[in-house]
Design a protein around this nucleic acid. Sequence first.
DNA 1: GACAACATACCAACTAGTCGGTATGGACAA
DNA 2: TTGTCCATACCGACTAGTTGGTATGTTGTC
Lengths: 206, 206
Amino acid sequence: MPARQQKQSARGKILDAALMVIRAKGYTATTVDDLCAASEVTKGAFFHHFKSKDDLAIAAADYWSEMTDRLFAAAPYHTCPDPLDRVLGYIDFRKTILTGTVPEFTCLVGTMVQEAYDSHPAIRDACARSIRGHAEKIEADISAAIKAHGVKAGWTARSLALHTQAVLQGAFILAKATGGPRLAAESIDHLRRYIELLFNRPRKKS
Amino acid sequence: MPARQQKQSARGKILDAALMVIRAKGYTATTVDDLCAASEVTKGAFFHHFKSKDDLAIAAADYWSEMTDRLFAAAPYHTCPDPLDRVLGYIDFRKTILTGTVPEFTCLVGTMVQEAYDSHPAIRDACARSIRGHAEKIEADISAAIKAHGVKAGWTARSLALHTQAVLQGAFILAKATGGPRLAAESIDHLRRYIELLFNRPRKKS
DNA sequence: GACAACATACCAACTAGTCGGTATGGACAA
DNA sequence: TTGTCCATACCGACTAGTTGGTATGTTGTC
């Protein structure tokens, strides 16, 4: 796998295009020709790198996980010493990245799993891995926050971490239905308020 | 629109089939032939009643709204005198109907809007109408609960009503990713706990 | 006999995937 | 250095099957 000199490889261009096109049109409505056109790659190149459209979808889900892992790993909230501040910082960060067009801030795997969960088990599993993997990172901070703040919870860190993902995915659906991120941002506000209440942390403004 | 004597009209059969097939496969992956096969109707009948596949999608979204309006209007929680009990009763009711297969308990318009929001504005609007219309019913009870319980809220009834829909839609995505309703139910539990905390209502068990 | 409610045959456009071919560059022997 | 060999990367015309939609009936009812 030799690193190319200056221009991105066809495989990378296809994956980058897939993230945008699939989020905008959905998986089924995205044709191989769409992806080839968006990435300025020929069909021959596409099927050289991916043995089928489904194979591309799985690779795209994995690629999405890598991209988001990097994005969140580099986010500023990790430096907070209090794990609860890291959890709230994560929520705030999710809100700040609601910018640009809808396909730009929504989630690839959340979109794909809706179409693929029944008919494409391999794609569903790749999407589930991505969501669970992301949730596990938040779960770690939630667990630490429970210990640090002595909260006796009738809920688990894992369950709350997955709930944050549910709220975000649902927020994206509201954004898609309404054509903008406003309602999504308000839903994230509710999620932040919930976590503050769970940990008895007072707010600046209600 | 004459009511048929005993057997359902072709139009009704197609709409019923659409609810199930589109929730299982997604809108784009659902072909007109799929719908004809599932409803035991010919293509001629399909295009007699709907001028295009998109037209069917819009009719299906409206039909979905009618069906769910009836379902929730008949639900037992409406008899509660305290509006907060009606809100919590609604949440509990949403949890109890998480039965059967995933396509049976998930939301048609939430599924469709994911695929249609960018490329099919008319379908997106029909889905948005359905979600907003449903949220407005909950908003009424939330408004009454705010007044009845003297809560001074930094959030609006509308915003909380829409948040409940975001949680539910996100819960469905988790259900699709994991193949069952367990995580969806846990997310609904978090939503109930949030509303209890907002209204300072103590729980039986944390 | 007029009209709605179907049924059947059909089509043009599109779709994922194939296949024979070319371009490039690295390994290696002479 | 030079030539052979080979793998990888890529090209684009082609195909078999599918898709939404249409054209032209037939049937039953007021």
